[in-house]
Structure formats: C-alpha cells, structure tokens
Simulated assay, not measured.
Amino acid sequence: MIKRLILIVALLCSAFPAFAVNPDEMLADPALEARAREISTHLRCLVCQNQSIDDSNAELAKDLRVLVRDRIEKGETNEQVIDYIVSRYGEFVLLKPRFEMQTLLLWGMPAFLALVGLVGIVVFSIKRRKSPSGKPLSEAEKAALEQILKN
C-alpha cells in the first residue's frame, strides 16, 4: 500500500515541468519545437525570476514562449532569437548572463570574494598564533599568577 502511494506521488511529481508549455504553443515541426525548447530553457521568466520561461505558467512567460516560436518560424537562428529578446528585455532575461564588460563584475565577484576570504583566514590564523600581548610576563605578574593558582 505504502509503495503504491510513493509510486503515485513520484509519478505525479515527475510530470510537473511538462505543464508549462501548452499544446497550442507547440510547433508542428519537432526539430523547430526542440530548438524553441532549448532557447526557452535559457530565458528567465520575468515574473517568477527563478524559473525559465519553459517551466513557468505566468502569462508573460507564455508570451515569451510564443515570441520565441514566432521568431524561429521566421527562420532566425537561436542566437538571433536570443539577441532579439535581450534587446527588448535586457540582459536580466538570460538565466546565465553573457561574459561581457558589463557583466565582468557579476562574473568576477565570486572569485574576488573567495580571495578576500582566503586572505582573511590567513591573516586571522597568523594573528592567532602570536601571544595576545607579544611580551613575556613581568616578575610581579608571575607572582600574582602564582598566588591565584595556589588559591
């Protein structure tokens, strides 16, 4: 009984991504539809922001999917379709931004932060190895310490 329930839930969950693209949006030519799907997986839904337009049920995502298919039917290449959509909606529409001068900070920041963290760890470990004051105890401090330890 439990195994059947788990199997049913697993089958239902595996079908969720297929709900986004409606049959009326699909192209008759399977090769063109495959190209449209490939392009759609790289474009961000501007409403959901964390999903591709291929996975989103938002109206704007549907409009973008239709736009992609229209441009493909007109004979444009994948790059031309993506360039057209980027020209209308900006670089933000790409799930993986292009490596350009405008996105250099975006691409370089993780490496920069990792380097800053590594330098911070090295500096912290060097400081930790040294004694807190950097000089030995005076005779009066040693006597006071001995007195505290005896009590």
Rank of each mutant, 00 (worst) to 15 (best):
D29Q: 05
M1R: 11
E91T: 11
S131W: 08
P17N: 04
L145D: 12
I72L: 12
E76A: 15
L145F: 11
R88M: 08
F99C: 09
D55V: 07
L7F: 10
V119R: 06
V66C: 05
P23G: 11
G75Q: 03
T41V: 10
F92W: 12
K127Q: 11
D55C: 06
I53K: 00
F99Q: 07
A140T: 08
K127D: 08
I85L: 11
S40H: 00
S56H: 01
A111R: 08
V116K: 07
E33C: 03
P136S: 06
D24S: 15
V9A: 13
P97Y: 02
V93M: 02
A36I: 02
D24M: 13
I2W: 09
A18G: 11
I85T: 02
L149K: 10
L67V: 05
I8L: 07
L115M: 09
K96A: 15
I85E: 00
F16I: 14
C48T: 06
P97H: 02
R98T: 02
P136F: 04
R128G: 05
T41E: 14
V21Y: 03
K62L: 08
I126S: 14
I148W: 13
K130Q: 12
V68W: 00
E25C: 04
S14W: 10
V116N: 05
V68E: 04
K130H: 15
I8A: 12
R71S: 07
E38N: 14
D29F: 03
C45V: 01
I2P: 05
R37C: 14
V9H: 08
K3L: 11
V81L: 02
N50Q: 12
A114G: 07
L145S: 06
K127M: 07
S87I: 03
S133M: 12
G108W: 05
Y89Q: 05
A34I: 04
G120P: 01
S52M: 01
A20Q: 01
W107Q: 03
I53V: 09
I8Q: 09
L12F: 09
L46E: 06
K74V: 14
N22T: 14
R98A: 09
E139M: 09
E146I: 05
V47I: 11
D70V: 08
R71H: 11
M101V: 10
N22F: 10
R69P: 01
L5W: 09
E73R: 13
L43G: 00
S40W: 00
H42L: 11
I6L: 14
P110M: 03
R98I: 04
D24F: 14
V119A: 10
L115C: 10
P17C: 04
T103D: 03
L7N: 12
G117R: 02
R71D: 08
M109E: 10
L64Q: 09
R4F: 07
A15K: 08
Q147S: 11
W107Y: 14
K96V: 13
L11G: 09
G90E: 02
S40G: 13
I39G: 00
P30R: 05
L5F: 12
I39L: 04
R4N: 12
A31Q: 10
R69F: 03
D63Q: 12
K74A: 11
D24Q: 08
Q80P: 00
D24N: 10
G75H: 04
L27M: 15
G134E: 05
K130P: 01
S40M: 08
T41F: 14
A28R: 15
V81N: 00
